[in-house]
């Protein structure tokens, strides 16, 4: 048995991997009670939902925590909800709710229900601080634009400016770098996300938000389809979030440093739960 010990080690490692792969699978889906509640947020959007080390910051995170406390759901356990997986995370019960620049649309309502809106954002442009030539979507002709592959923003701008020269990357972070280096002239997505980037220490004074939105995005809290009771509770919490002044405080804290002011209609009144 020359290789006996190696075989045992290999089996042990393989078994360990198998277990790791199943980790969390046996936990109560969505977890109500038991001390923690799984909440889906974005991990890569400064000012909204950002994972910085072991900590999470941003407006969406503030709201997620507020709802968890208000409804006594337990300690928030944040899970990354990348755009393409949001509906699946909710419908399979892997998260209780998602707050991550989640725009309310009819197609998404087929799979999930929404409470809210809690914020009205709009697509805008981020340009270099010394660039005076871009004043809005109409001055984009002949300019190089950057956005995230497969995003609503990229699609929207293609429809609005058909001959736009569009660079698409996996993440907005690459776009911000390309913008600063001069490889592209503007970055487009929701103004909230842009404000978050403009407020980052590394970008302060180098980039600015144009401040002329050309779309309307209603951010909502995504939750299990048809769970009207929970939707109602979240809606009440949202109302309280605004009326207690927490909403304003959160916006000022996370998006304010870049001089961003929420557009008209904010804070919005949440729609009734269907």
């Amino acid at each position: 048995m020359k290789f006996g010990r190696f075989t045992v080690a290999a089996v042990a490692v393989t078994a360990g991997l198998g277990l790791a792969g199943c980790g969390g699978g046996s936990a109560t889906p969505g977890a109500s009670g038991g001390g923690t509640v799984k909440i889906g947020i974005k991990f890569d959007q400064p000012g909204l939902g950002l994972k910085a080390g072991a900590d999470f910051t941003g407006m969406d995170v503030d709201l997620a925590r507020y709802i968890a406390t208000e409804l006594k759901l337990g300690t928030p356990d944040f899970v990354e909800a990348v755009s393409a997986q949001r509906e699946t995370l909710i419908s399979t019960g892997q998260v209780k709710y998602i707050i991550g620049t989640y725009s309310i649309t009819d197609a998404r309502k087929e799979k999930v229900s929404f409470a809210g809106p809690y914020f009205i954002a709009g697509q805008d442009l981020l340009v270099r601080a010394d660039d005076m030539s871009i004043t809005g979507v109409e001055s984009l002709a002949g300019k190089k634009l950057c956005s995230a592959k497969g995003s609503t923003s990229a699609n929207n701008v293609k429809a609005k400016v058909p001959d736009v020269n569009l660079q698409e990357y996996q993440t907005y972070t690459l776009c911000v770098d390309a913008l600063k280096s001069g490889a592209v002239d503007a970055l487009t997505t929701d103004d909230t996300i842009l404000a978050g980037y403009a407020a980052q220490e590394a970008n302060k004074g180098k980039v600015k938000v144009v401040g002329k939105t050309f779309s309307t995005e209603n951010y909502g809290v995504g939750l299990a389809k048809g769970d009207t009771a929970f939707c109602q509770q979240v809606t009440d919490a949202l109302k309280k979030f605004v009326s207690s002044g927490e909403w304003q405080k959160s916006v000022d804290k996370h998006l304010g440093p870049a001089g961003y002011k929420p557009g008209a209609g904010n804070p919005p009144a949440p729609a009734a739960c269907a």
Partner: peptide
């Protein structure tokens, strides 16, 4: 190639899921 925005099928898959998550 979708990493740099080439309009191939996996990039379009992402786009389709973004807009039509009901047809996942």
């Amino acid at each position: 190639a979708t990493a740099i925005g080439v309009a191939e099928i996996s990039g379009l898959m992402k786009e389709m899921i973004e807009f039509r998550s009901d047809l996942l």
